[in-house]
Design a binder for these strands. Structure first.
Lengths: 198, 198
DNA sequence: CGCCGTTCTGAACGATGGTTCCAAAAAGGT
DNA sequence: ACCTTTTTGGAACCATCGTTCAGAACGGCG
Protein backbone atom coordinates (compact mmCIF):
# COMPACT_ATOMS: atom_id res chain seq x y z
CA UNK A 1 0.00 0.00 0.00
CA UNK A 2 1.00 3.64 0.15
CA UNK A 3 1.65 5.98 -2.73
CA UNK A 4 2.80 4.13 -5.85
CA UNK A 5 5.90 5.16 -7.75
CA UNK A 6 5.50 7.56 -10.61
CA UNK A 7 8.52 6.26 -12.56
CA UNK A 8 9.44 3.01 -14.26
CA UNK A 9 12.47 1.66 -12.47
CA UNK A 10 13.79 -0.03 -15.58
CA UNK A 11 13.65 3.11 -17.67
CA UNK A 12 15.37 5.09 -14.95
CA UNK A 13 18.17 2.55 -14.78
CA UNK A 14 18.60 2.75 -18.54
CA UNK A 15 18.85 6.53 -18.45
CA UNK A 16 21.33 6.36 -15.59
CA UNK A 17 23.42 3.81 -17.41
CA UNK A 18 23.50 5.92 -20.53
CA UNK A 19 24.71 8.89 -18.53
CA UNK A 20 27.42 6.92 -16.73
CA UNK A 21 28.38 5.47 -20.07
CA UNK A 22 28.80 8.88 -21.61
CA UNK A 23 30.48 10.85 -18.87
CA UNK A 24 31.91 8.17 -16.59
CA UNK A 25 31.57 7.78 -12.86
CA UNK A 26 33.57 10.78 -11.70
CA UNK A 27 32.30 12.84 -14.60
CA UNK A 28 28.59 12.57 -13.80
CA UNK A 29 27.03 14.38 -10.90
CA UNK A 30 23.88 13.43 -9.07
CA UNK A 31 22.36 16.55 -10.60
CA UNK A 32 23.07 15.08 -14.02
CA UNK A 33 21.35 11.87 -13.01
CA UNK A 34 18.42 13.84 -11.67
CA UNK A 35 18.17 15.70 -14.95
CA UNK A 36 18.28 12.68 -17.26
CA UNK A 37 15.92 10.61 -15.16
CA UNK A 38 13.43 13.34 -14.38
CA UNK A 39 13.60 12.34 -10.73
CA UNK A 40 14.61 14.69 -7.96
CA UNK A 41 17.73 13.93 -6.02
CA UNK A 42 15.75 12.93 -2.98
CA UNK A 43 13.77 10.38 -4.95
CA UNK A 44 16.92 8.95 -6.45
CA UNK A 45 18.45 8.49 -3.03
CA UNK A 46 15.41 6.89 -1.47
CA UNK A 47 14.96 4.57 -4.44
CA UNK A 48 18.55 3.57 -5.24
CA UNK A 49 20.79 4.66 -2.40
CA UNK A 50 23.86 6.78 -2.93
CA UNK A 51 25.76 7.40 -6.14
CA UNK A 52 28.31 4.66 -5.59
CA UNK A 53 25.69 2.03 -4.78
CA UNK A 54 23.70 3.00 -7.84
CA UNK A 55 26.74 2.84 -10.06
CA UNK A 56 27.79 -0.56 -8.76
CA UNK A 57 24.32 -1.86 -9.43
CA UNK A 58 24.31 -0.54 -12.99
CA UNK A 59 27.76 -1.92 -13.59
CA UNK A 60 26.98 -5.34 -12.15
CA UNK A 61 23.86 -5.63 -14.24
CA UNK A 62 25.77 -4.61 -17.34
CA UNK A 63 28.43 -7.22 -16.66
CA UNK A 64 25.80 -9.87 -16.06
CA UNK A 65 24.10 -9.09 -19.35
CA UNK A 66 27.48 -9.12 -21.05
CA UNK A 67 28.17 -12.55 -19.58
CA UNK A 68 24.79 -13.66 -20.79
CA UNK A 69 25.24 -12.57 -24.39
CA UNK A 70 28.70 -14.08 -24.42
CA UNK A 71 27.22 -17.39 -23.37
CA UNK A 72 24.41 -17.07 -25.89
CA UNK A 73 26.86 -16.53 -28.71
CA UNK A 74 28.38 -19.98 -28.36
CA UNK A 75 25.04 -21.66 -29.11
CA UNK A 76 24.52 -22.48 -32.74
CA UNK A 77 25.79 -24.63 -35.59
CA UNK A 78 29.51 -25.25 -35.35
CA UNK A 79 30.21 -24.40 -38.97
CA UNK A 80 28.86 -20.89 -38.36
CA UNK A 81 30.97 -20.21 -35.30
CA UNK A 82 33.35 -18.03 -37.28
CA UNK A 83 30.46 -16.07 -38.71
CA UNK A 84 29.23 -15.37 -35.22
CA UNK A 85 32.66 -14.12 -34.21
CA UNK A 86 32.78 -11.97 -37.33
CA UNK A 87 29.38 -10.52 -36.61
CA UNK A 88 30.41 -9.73 -33.07
CA UNK A 89 33.51 -7.92 -34.24
CA UNK A 90 31.66 -6.03 -36.94
CA UNK A 91 28.95 -4.63 -34.69
CA UNK A 92 30.52 -2.73 -31.80
CA UNK A 93 28.45 -2.64 -28.64
CA UNK A 94 26.99 0.79 -28.09
CA UNK A 95 27.61 1.69 -31.64
CA UNK A 96 25.23 4.31 -33.06
CA UNK A 97 27.22 7.12 -31.52
CA UNK A 98 30.70 6.74 -30.10
CA UNK A 99 29.57 5.84 -26.63
CA UNK A 100 31.25 2.47 -26.35
CA UNK A 101 30.56 -0.18 -23.80
CA UNK A 102 30.27 0.42 -20.10
CA UNK A 103 32.61 -2.40 -19.21
CA UNK A 104 35.46 -0.90 -21.21
CA UNK A 105 34.85 2.60 -19.95
CA UNK A 106 34.57 1.53 -16.33
CA UNK A 107 37.61 -0.70 -16.43
CA UNK A 108 39.63 2.15 -17.89
CA UNK A 109 38.38 4.65 -15.36
CA UNK A 110 38.15 2.71 -12.13
CA UNK A 111 39.98 -0.62 -12.26
CA UNK A 112 43.14 0.97 -10.96
CA UNK A 113 41.58 2.53 -7.88
CA UNK A 114 38.76 0.14 -7.05
CA UNK A 115 39.43 -3.49 -6.23
CA UNK A 116 35.80 -4.55 -6.54
CA UNK A 117 35.37 -3.02 -9.97
CA UNK A 118 38.61 -4.62 -11.09
CA UNK A 119 37.45 -8.03 -9.91
CA UNK A 120 34.09 -7.77 -11.65
CA UNK A 121 35.77 -6.55 -14.84
CA UNK A 122 38.22 -9.41 -14.78
CA UNK A 123 35.41 -11.91 -14.38
CA UNK A 124 33.53 -10.39 -17.30
CA UNK A 125 36.58 -10.48 -19.52
CA UNK A 126 37.33 -14.06 -18.57
CA UNK A 127 33.81 -15.03 -19.52
CA UNK A 128 34.36 -13.30 -22.82
CA UNK A 129 37.67 -15.07 -23.34
CA UNK A 130 36.16 -18.42 -22.52
CA UNK A 131 33.22 -18.01 -24.88
CA UNK A 132 35.48 -16.95 -27.73
CA UNK A 133 37.77 -19.88 -27.02
CA UNK A 134 34.79 -22.18 -27.35
CA UNK A 135 33.76 -20.57 -30.62
CA UNK A 136 37.25 -21.01 -31.99
CA UNK A 137 37.18 -24.66 -30.99
CA UNK A 138 33.87 -25.06 -32.78
CA UNK A 139 35.46 -23.56 -35.87
CA UNK A 140 38.36 -25.94 -35.47
CA UNK A 141 36.03 -28.92 -35.36
CA UNK A 142 34.28 -27.52 -38.41
CA UNK A 143 37.62 -27.42 -40.19
CA UNK A 144 37.74 -23.65 -40.59
CA UNK A 145 40.57 -23.03 -38.14
CA UNK A 146 43.86 -24.87 -37.85
CA UNK A 147 43.21 -27.64 -35.29
CA UNK A 148 46.79 -27.34 -34.08
CA UNK A 149 46.36 -23.71 -33.12
CA UNK A 150 46.05 -22.49 -29.53
CA UNK A 151 42.30 -21.93 -29.22
CA UNK A 152 42.59 -19.87 -26.05
CA UNK A 153 45.11 -17.55 -27.66
CA UNK A 154 43.02 -17.19 -30.81
CA UNK A 155 39.92 -16.51 -28.76
CA UNK A 156 41.90 -13.95 -26.83
CA UNK A 157 42.99 -12.40 -30.09
CA UNK A 158 39.38 -11.89 -31.04
CA UNK A 159 38.49 -10.42 -27.65
CA UNK A 160 41.47 -8.08 -27.71
CA UNK A 161 40.64 -6.96 -31.22
CA UNK A 162 37.04 -6.34 -30.26
CA UNK A 163 38.11 -4.20 -27.36
CA UNK A 164 40.61 -2.35 -29.51
CA UNK A 165 38.11 -1.71 -32.27
CA UNK A 166 35.87 -0.05 -29.75
CA UNK A 167 38.72 2.17 -28.63
CA UNK A 168 39.37 3.17 -32.23
CA UNK A 169 35.68 3.77 -32.77
CA UNK A 170 35.53 6.04 -29.76
CA UNK A 171 38.49 7.98 -31.10
CA UNK A 172 36.57 8.54 -34.31
CA UNK A 173 38.13 6.10 -36.77
CA UNK A 174 35.57 5.54 -39.51
CA UNK A 175 33.41 2.46 -39.42
CA UNK A 176 34.53 1.26 -42.83
CA UNK A 177 38.12 0.97 -41.66
CA UNK A 178 37.00 -0.79 -38.50
CA UNK A 179 35.06 -3.33 -40.50
CA UNK A 180 38.04 -4.02 -42.72
CA UNK A 181 40.08 -4.69 -39.59
CA UNK A 182 37.37 -6.92 -38.16
CA UNK A 183 37.18 -8.96 -41.33
CA UNK A 184 40.95 -9.18 -41.57
CA UNK A 185 41.03 -10.51 -38.03
CA UNK A 186 38.65 -13.36 -38.79
CA UNK A 187 40.36 -14.03 -42.10
CA UNK A 188 43.74 -14.22 -40.44
CA UNK A 189 42.69 -17.04 -38.16
CA UNK A 190 40.84 -18.87 -40.94
CA UNK A 191 42.44 -21.73 -42.80
CA UNK A 192 43.62 -20.74 -46.27
CA UNK A 193 40.83 -22.20 -48.45
CA UNK A 194 38.29 -19.74 -47.08
CA UNK A 195 40.48 -16.66 -47.01
CA UNK A 196 39.01 -13.63 -48.72
CA UNK A 197 42.20 -11.61 -48.89
CA UNK A 198 42.24 -7.86 -49.64
CA UNK B 1 66.54 37.88 -11.88
CA UNK B 2 64.08 37.29 -9.04
CA UNK B 3 63.64 34.20 -6.94
CA UNK B 4 64.56 31.05 -8.84
CA UNK B 5 62.18 28.10 -9.06
CA UNK B 6 62.55 25.41 -6.47
CA UNK B 7 61.18 22.58 -8.65
CA UNK B 8 62.21 20.83 -11.84
CA UNK B 9 59.46 21.44 -14.38
CA UNK B 10 60.05 18.15 -16.12
CA UNK B 11 59.76 16.12 -12.94
CA UNK B 12 56.59 17.93 -11.98
CA UNK B 13 55.05 17.16 -15.36
CA UNK B 14 55.93 13.51 -14.96
CA UNK B 15 54.29 13.34 -11.54
CA UNK B 16 51.22 15.11 -12.87
CA UNK B 17 51.01 12.75 -15.80
CA UNK B 18 51.26 9.74 -13.56
CA UNK B 19 48.43 11.04 -11.43
CA UNK B 20 46.17 11.81 -14.39
CA UNK B 21 47.06 8.41 -15.75
CA UNK B 22 45.98 6.69 -12.57
CA UNK B 23 42.84 8.54 -11.61
CA UNK B 24 41.80 10.25 -14.82
CA UNK B 25 40.92 13.88 -15.44
CA UNK B 26 37.68 14.10 -13.48
CA UNK B 27 39.06 11.79 -10.83
CA UNK B 28 42.06 13.88 -9.85
CA UNK B 29 41.72 17.08 -7.88
CA UNK B 30 44.13 19.95 -7.84
CA UNK B 31 44.86 18.95 -4.26
CA UNK B 32 45.99 15.57 -5.54
CA UNK B 33 48.28 17.27 -8.01
CA UNK B 34 49.61 19.49 -5.27
CA UNK B 35 50.31 16.46 -3.13
CA UNK B 36 52.13 14.40 -5.75
CA UNK B 37 54.18 17.30 -7.03
CA UNK B 38 55.04 18.82 -3.66
CA UNK B 39 53.98 22.19 -5.01
CA UNK B 40 51.28 24.32 -3.45
CA UNK B 41 48.16 24.97 -5.46
CA UNK B 42 49.15 28.57 -6.01
CA UNK B 43 52.47 27.56 -7.48
CA UNK B 44 50.82 25.08 -9.79
CA UNK B 45 48.47 27.74 -11.08
CA UNK B 46 51.12 30.37 -11.64
CA UNK B 47 53.41 27.87 -13.34
CA UNK B 48 50.99 25.88 -15.48
CA UNK B 49 47.65 27.66 -15.55
CA UNK B 50 44.41 25.97 -14.61
CA UNK B 51 43.69 22.26 -14.39
CA UNK B 52 42.30 21.94 -17.90
CA UNK B 53 45.22 23.75 -19.50
CA UNK B 54 47.67 21.60 -17.60
CA UNK B 55 45.89 18.43 -18.60
CA UNK B 56 45.76 19.38 -22.26
CA UNK B 57 49.48 20.08 -22.19
CA UNK B 58 50.25 16.73 -20.59
CA UNK B 59 48.00 14.96 -23.04
CA UNK B 60 49.42 16.72 -26.09
CA UNK B 61 52.94 15.92 -25.04
CA UNK B 62 52.01 12.31 -24.45
CA UNK B 63 50.45 12.06 -27.90
CA UNK B 64 53.47 13.68 -29.48
CA UNK B 65 55.81 11.22 -27.84
CA UNK B 66 53.51 8.40 -28.88
CA UNK B 67 53.67 9.63 -32.48
CA UNK B 68 57.41 9.80 -32.19
CA UNK B 69 57.88 6.24 -30.96
CA UNK B 70 55.47 4.99 -33.59
CA UNK B 71 57.57 6.64 -36.27
CA UNK B 72 60.76 5.32 -34.70
CA UNK B 73 59.43 1.78 -34.80
CA UNK B 74 59.28 1.70 -38.58
CA UNK B 75 63.03 2.26 -38.90
CA UNK B 76 65.08 -0.91 -39.13
CA UNK B 77 65.74 -3.93 -41.30
CA UNK B 78 62.68 -5.04 -43.22
CA UNK B 79 63.05 -8.69 -42.32
CA UNK B 80 62.72 -7.77 -38.65
CA UNK B 81 59.57 -5.72 -39.03
CA UNK B 82 57.42 -8.51 -37.66
CA UNK B 83 59.70 -8.86 -34.67
CA UNK B 84 59.28 -5.20 -33.93
CA UNK B 85 55.52 -5.55 -34.07
CA UNK B 86 55.73 -8.58 -31.81
CA UNK B 87 57.88 -6.73 -29.32
CA UNK B 88 55.45 -3.83 -29.31
CA UNK B 89 52.52 -6.13 -28.61
CA UNK B 90 54.39 -8.04 -25.94
CA UNK B 91 55.40 -5.02 -23.87
CA UNK B 92 52.32 -2.98 -22.94
CA UNK B 93 52.95 0.71 -22.47
CA UNK B 94 52.82 1.67 -18.81
CA UNK B 95 53.21 -1.90 -17.84
CA UNK B 96 54.80 -2.44 -14.41
CA UNK B 97 51.50 -1.91 -12.65
CA UNK B 98 48.13 -1.86 -14.37
CA UNK B 99 48.20 1.82 -15.17
CA UNK B 100 47.87 1.62 -18.91
CA UNK B 101 48.55 4.36 -21.40
CA UNK B 102 47.28 7.89 -21.09
CA UNK B 103 45.99 7.96 -24.64
CA UNK B 104 43.68 5.01 -24.06
CA UNK B 105 42.48 6.27 -20.71
CA UNK B 106 41.85 9.78 -21.96
CA UNK B 107 40.07 8.67 -25.10
CA UNK B 108 37.80 6.46 -23.04
CA UNK B 109 37.09 9.17 -20.51
CA UNK B 110 36.84 12.33 -22.56
CA UNK B 111 36.54 11.68 -26.29
CA UNK B 112 32.77 11.66 -26.06
CA UNK B 113 32.44 15.04 -24.36
CA UNK B 114 35.45 16.94 -25.67
CA UNK B 115 35.92 17.59 -29.36
CA UNK B 116 39.54 18.68 -29.04
CA UNK B 117 40.56 15.59 -27.11
CA UNK B 118 38.76 13.42 -29.64
CA UNK B 119 40.60 15.08 -32.52
CA UNK B 120 44.00 14.68 -30.90
CA UNK B 121 43.24 11.05 -30.04
CA UNK B 122 42.16 10.33 -33.58
CA UNK B 123 45.34 11.82 -34.96
CA UNK B 124 47.44 9.73 -32.58
CA UNK B 125 45.62 6.56 -33.52
CA UNK B 126 45.96 7.30 -37.21
CA UNK B 127 49.68 7.74 -36.78
CA UNK B 128 49.73 4.39 -35.03
CA UNK B 129 47.70 2.77 -37.80
CA UNK B 130 49.94 4.22 -40.47
CA UNK B 131 53.16 3.08 -38.82
CA UNK B 132 51.83 -0.43 -38.34
CA UNK B 133 50.67 -0.50 -41.96
CA UNK B 134 54.20 0.36 -43.01
CA UNK B 135 55.66 -2.36 -40.82
CA UNK B 136 53.28 -4.89 -42.32
CA UNK B 137 54.32 -3.79 -45.79
CA UNK B 138 57.95 -4.23 -44.82
CA UNK B 139 57.12 -7.75 -43.69
CA UNK B 140 55.33 -8.33 -46.97
CA UNK B 141 58.39 -7.27 -48.92
CA UNK B 142 60.48 -9.52 -46.70
CA UNK B 143 58.19 -12.41 -47.62
CA UNK B 144 56.86 -12.98 -44.13
CA UNK B 145 53.33 -11.76 -44.78
CA UNK B 146 51.06 -12.63 -47.69
CA UNK B 147 51.71 -9.88 -50.28
CA UNK B 148 48.09 -10.07 -51.38
CA UNK B 149 46.79 -9.16 -47.94
CA UNK B 150 45.38 -5.75 -47.06
CA UNK B 151 48.29 -4.14 -45.24
CA UNK B 152 46.18 -1.37 -43.76
CA UNK B 153 43.72 -3.87 -42.30
CA UNK B 154 46.51 -6.05 -40.94
CA UNK B 155 48.22 -3.05 -39.41
CA UNK B 156 44.90 -2.07 -37.91
CA UNK B 157 44.54 -5.56 -36.54
CA UNK B 158 47.81 -5.14 -34.69
CA UNK B 159 46.83 -1.73 -33.34
CA UNK B 160 43.44 -2.96 -32.21
CA UNK B 161 44.98 -5.97 -30.53
CA UNK B 162 47.52 -3.78 -28.78
CA UNK B 163 44.79 -1.57 -27.44
CA UNK B 164 42.72 -4.57 -26.41
CA UNK B 165 45.63 -6.23 -24.66
CA UNK B 166 46.05 -3.15 -22.58
CA UNK B 167 42.39 -3.23 -21.62
CA UNK B 168 42.74 -6.85 -20.57
CA UNK B 169 45.89 -6.02 -18.64
CA UNK B 170 44.13 -3.28 -16.79
CA UNK B 171 41.34 -5.67 -15.89
CA UNK B 172 43.93 -7.97 -14.39
CA UNK B 173 44.33 -10.73 -16.97
CA UNK B 174 47.70 -12.33 -16.29
CA UNK B 175 50.67 -11.36 -18.40
CA UNK B 176 51.34 -14.88 -19.57
CA UNK B 177 47.95 -15.08 -21.24
CA UNK B 178 48.44 -11.67 -22.78
CA UNK B 179 51.74 -12.72 -24.27
CA UNK B 180 50.20 -15.83 -25.73
CA UNK B 181 47.59 -13.63 -27.40
CA UNK B 182 50.24 -11.24 -28.65
CA UNK B 183 52.26 -14.03 -30.18
CA UNK B 184 49.18 -15.62 -31.70
CA UNK B 185 48.35 -12.30 -33.30
CA UNK B 186 51.69 -12.03 -35.04
CA UNK B 187 51.63 -15.70 -35.95
CA UNK B 188 48.19 -15.38 -37.47
CA UNK B 189 49.33 -12.76 -39.96
CA UNK B 190 52.56 -14.60 -40.73
CA UNK B 191 52.87 -16.83 -43.79
CA UNK B 192 52.67 -20.51 -42.93
CA UNK B 193 56.37 -21.51 -43.05
CA UNK B 194 57.18 -19.40 -40.01
CA UNK B 195 54.13 -20.26 -37.93
CA UNK B 196 54.91 -21.43 -34.39
CA UNK B 197 51.49 -22.86 -33.67
CA UNK B 198 50.26 -23.66 -30.14
C1' DC C 1 74.24 44.90 2.83
C1' DG C 2 69.78 46.21 1.05
C1' DC C 3 66.84 46.69 -2.90
C1' DC C 4 64.03 44.27 -6.27
C1' DG C 5 61.72 40.98 -8.96
C1' DT C 6 60.04 36.59 -8.81
C1' DT C 7 58.30 32.48 -6.55
C1' DC C 8 56.17 30.26 -2.77
C1' DT C 9 52.71 29.42 0.69
C1' DG C 10 48.40 29.17 2.84
C1' DA C 11 44.17 31.30 3.65
C1' DA C 12 40.01 32.73 1.50
C1' DC C 13 36.39 32.67 -2.05
C1' DG C 14 32.31 31.23 -4.59
C1' DA C 15 30.58 27.23 -6.99
C1' DT C 16 29.43 22.77 -7.07
C1' DG C 17 29.77 18.15 -5.20
C1' DG C 18 27.10 14.33 -2.57
C1' DT C 19 23.86 13.61 1.03
C1' DT C 20 20.03 14.30 4.37
C1' DC C 21 15.70 15.84 5.83
C1' DC C 22 10.96 17.35 5.90
C1' DA C 23 6.52 18.95 4.62
C1' DA C 24 3.32 18.29 0.96
C1' DA C 25 1.13 15.08 -2.26
C1' DA C 26 -0.82 10.91 -3.70
C1' DA C 27 -2.80 6.65 -3.76
C1' DG C 28 -5.00 2.11 -1.12
C1' DG C 29 -7.39 0.08 2.61
C1' DT C 30 -11.01 0.43 5.98
C1' DA D 1 -14.11 10.39 3.74
C1' DC D 2 -10.35 9.42 6.80
C1' DC D 3 -6.04 7.42 8.00
C1' DT D 4 -1.84 5.03 6.80
C1' DT D 5 1.93 4.47 4.03
C1' DT D 6 4.96 5.71 0.61
C1' DT D 7 6.81 8.88 -2.82
C1' DT D 8 8.04 13.35 -4.09
C1' DG D 9 10.35 17.81 -4.75
C1' DG D 10 13.26 21.03 -3.02
C1' DA D 11 15.50 23.38 0.57
C1' DA D 12 19.37 22.88 3.63
C1' DC D 13 23.86 20.92 4.86
C1' DC D 14 28.69 20.33 4.90
C1' DA D 15 32.72 18.85 2.36
C1' DT D 16 35.33 19.49 -1.49
C1' DC D 17 36.07 21.49 -5.84
C1' DG D 18 38.80 24.84 -8.83
C1' DT D 19 40.60 29.31 -8.48
C1' DT D 20 42.46 33.73 -6.72
C1' DC D 21 44.97 36.72 -3.81
C1' DA D 22 48.08 39.02 -0.51
C1' DG D 23 51.99 38.72 1.94
C1' DA D 24 56.16 36.09 3.33
C1' DA D 25 60.39 33.94 1.52
C1' DC D 26 64.14 33.88 -1.38
C1' DG D 27 68.31 34.87 -4.61
C1' DG D 28 70.61 37.84 -7.73
C1' DC D 29 72.57 42.28 -8.38
C1' DG D 30 74.10 46.73 -7.43
Amino acid sequence: MGRPRKFDEHEVLIAVRRQFNETGYHGTSVDDLSRVTGLSKGSLYSAFGDKETLFRRIFDEYCASSDQSAAARVDGPEDQALDRLRAWLTAPDGCPDRRGCLLAKTTAELAWEDEGIAARSLAAYETLLESCRMLVEQAQRAGQVDPAADSAALGGLVVATHRGLEALLKAGVDTKTLNRIANATIDSITLEPTRTSA
